[in-house]
Simulated assay, not measured.
Amino acid sequence: MFKSRLLLITSSLILLAGLILGACAQATPPLTTPTAISPAEPVTLRIVVLPILDTLPMYVAQQKGYFDAQGVKVEFIPAGSAAERDQIIAAGQGDGMVNDLVSTLFYNQDTIQIQIVSLARTATSEFPQYSILAAGNSGISSVEGLKGVEIGISEGSVIAYTTDRLLQAEGLSPDQIKTIAVPKIGERMALLGSGELKAANLPDPLSSLAIQSGAIPILNDTKHPELGNSEISFRKVVIDEHPQAIRGFLIAVEQAIKEINADPSQWESLLTEQKLVPEPLIGTYKIPPFPTGSVPSEAQWADVLAWAKEKGLISKDVSYSDSVTAEFLP
């Protein structure tokens, strides 16, 4: 009798425990593996590049992985001339470029096609960007000697603008300034070297090479650094579609600029690899400081606009605020 009662109690306890455990099991939600959040696909920005020093920070940012860190993929599209660069941009086959204020005016004279988002490079009191040189056998040694002398330029360009404005700043009147169109830089250098051209305006570092080869420096924008600059620009449609990518791009470039400015001597292999500096200058050429976190001023824009209207290159005003934005600066 006792055994039967004990067996009954034991069975009841086992049944009760089972019910309790079953209830607990139902009350505890099943464990689930969290869904992994995949990072957004990096935006690809296609940058049309000329073989010019102004693009060095972009190459450094690429080499150091700074674009990747910002979630931006950069594809460089080489162009042999400003005309080829502009064709690629106009066709929508490139997204951004290094250009200048004059070029931007032409893009935006009818509708806003591109926006400047940053300075790429600017002249300083020690480092020129544009230089007017005389041929070694020309007998010209001063600005006065350039009166009435044909100066080789590319017409309707930043070269033409800086030629006029530099000489005017030094006292020459417009009728004393004579120019001749030699659009190809290589040809302009060769004609200057042979003496067939008595004078020419050349961008740095090609001006340094010409001087090393015997040309005579007459005037450059170290005296008037507000005149010499280049810009980073993007197509407006790309800016509107990928504002964060533009911001990330500039953060990466800024990081590269700080490294370059801190130690300009460590980039010779990159200069050679990308042909940013002529071979004979490697080892002696000093890299200029690059500007950080800035855009051209409204006064600079207004002067280029005034010059273009004086020359009959454009007939109406082009808005600074629509063409230049500081919104994406780091």
Rank of each mutant, 00 (worst) to 15 (best):
2 F>P: 01
10 T>V: 13
12 S>F: 14
23 A>L: 14
25 A>D: 12
39 P>N: 05
45 L>C: 12
48 V>G: 03
52 I>S: 02
54 D>V: 04
55 T>I: 06
65 G>L: 06
67 F>E: 11
71 G>D: 02
73 K>V: 09
74 V>Y: 00
75 E>H: 04
77 I>M: 09
81 S>A: 14
89 I>M: 07
90 A>V: 00
97 M>V: 09
100 D>G: 07
103 S>N: 09
104 T>C: 07
107 Y>W: 15
108 N>K: 05
111 T>Y: 10
118 S>Y: 03
123 A>E: 11
126 E>K: 08
127 F>V: 06
127 F>G: 01
134 A>L: 04
136 G>H: 03
137 N>L: 10
139 G>Y: 11
139 G>I: 13
141 S>H: 14
145 G>I: 00
149 V>C: 03
150 E>C: 05
150 E>T: 12
158 V>G: 09
163 T>W: 03
164 D>N: 08
178 K>L: 10
183 P>T: 12
184 K>Y: 03
190 A>T: 15
195 G>S: 06
197 L>H: 07
198 K>E: 09
210 A>S: 08
228 G>P: 07
240 D>I: 12
246 I>C: 08
255 Q>T: 15
256 A>K: 01
257 I>Y: 01
257 I>H: 02
265 S>R: 10
265 S>D: 14
266 Q>I: 06
269 S>I: 06
272 T>F: 07
272 T>R: 15
274 Q>H: 11
285 Y>Q: 01
297 S>A: 14
298 E>W: 04
301 W>R: 01
301 W>H: 03
302 A>P: 04
306 A>E: 10
309 K>W: 11
324 V>Y: 10
324 V>R: 05
330 P>W: 13
